[in-house]
Design a protein around this nucleic acid. Structure first.
Lengths: 175, 175
DNA sequence: GACTTATTATTAGGTGGCTAACAGTTTTCT
DNA sequence: AGAAAACTGTTAGCCACCTAATAATAAGTC
């Protein structure tokens, strides 16, 4: 669901659209384009890296929740809430993760509606192998910004968020 | 594909992961989290708005290419290249757009492998109706940043891009 | 001119997201 | 106690993306 992928929509093209649509503010759109394009690139890169280990953004988000509390069992609902996706999507992700032996499903002892999910031993090993290069990549991505610049970036992003209409609820993260 | 949706991965959780993974640089991850979370929110909002008119990010990207050169015919390959998605995906998008009467498919007069695509009259009318509020929303999103701040944001984003490995080709945009 | 190579659009099959509907359970409320 | 309400996970069906394979056609080569 990303908007900008190529450079086909350069400034020149933008000017042409602006001729037809008076509401178009070129400066706003250019800034947004850069923003979305960068986020697409960053996202793709991380996704590509996880792909080497058979993981995906969706999978890693769910796995990380379990990784930080290793011994605990989680219900699909709990995972859905923590990750910010629907229960239906979690079911689909778990199907794959169980198939690949990364996670195990168990019946809940008291409530027969529920299922309990936990990382398998192999799942933990996988994460121990995947996470170091994952975070190394993130550190590398940010290495061009010093602490001041990072704060400044976060500050600008927060300013954008303040202009989001309230009804647009937000859910998550994957560190 | 977005990574961060909820706030389940707050700083505290991050600290815990950092204990297990020494490669994790908290400042980098925090900055990236904010970045991805904001981009997710912005993206969702735009998507939601387009949805009111039966459009999606994928559709609008393809349509915009045709909108700026209204009379021209485009081949699916051409659209794929300009938008930065595969031809297979374009085929799928066009199926829907043709079904909805927004776009028309024609045979190429000389090369029988090719197909020629063009906006229908209804398609043009739809875009004339959709684009003004679309760009109004973008202007609103950026209204919290003055010109200096926008330049500063773009500059910081470019710094991040400079640290992307080269092999990660990038494709595009939707203004 | 025939054969190989390249190109086009499409199909098939996979993924991760969504909503809506469902059956099975538990809880709540009279 | 029994009916209604609420909750759980799954399924079904849609979308937009991907890769790989395919059939049809065009272009290049010997």
């Amino acid at each position: 669901m990303d908007f900008d992928r190529s450079d086909s929509f350069n400034k020149q093209t933008l000017q042409e659209v602006a001729k037809k649509i008076p509401q178009l503010d070129v400066s706003s759109v250019e800034t947004l384009l850069t923003f979305i394009k960068t986020s697409y690139k960053v996202h793709s890169l991380i996704e590509e890296n996880l792909g080497f280990y058979g993981l995906s953004p969706g999978r890693i988000r769910v796995l990380l929740v379990m990784y930080v509390e290793n011994d605990k069992y989680f219900t699909p609902s709990e995972l859905a809430d923590k990750v910010g996706i629907t229960r239906a999507t979690v079911t689909g992700l778990l199907d794959g993760l169980v198939r690949d032996g990364i996670v195990e499903r168990r019946n809940h002892p008291n409530d027969r509606r529920m299922v309990m999910i936990r990382l398998t031993h192999d799942g933990v090993k996988l994460l121990n192998r995947v996470l170091p290069p994952h975070y190394l990549l993130i550190a590398q991505l940010m290495s061009g910004l010093n602490e001041t610049e990072r704060k400044s970036l976060v500050h600008l992003l927060e300013k954008i968020e303040q202009n989001l209409p309230d009804h647009a609820q937000t859910p998550v993260q994957e560190p």
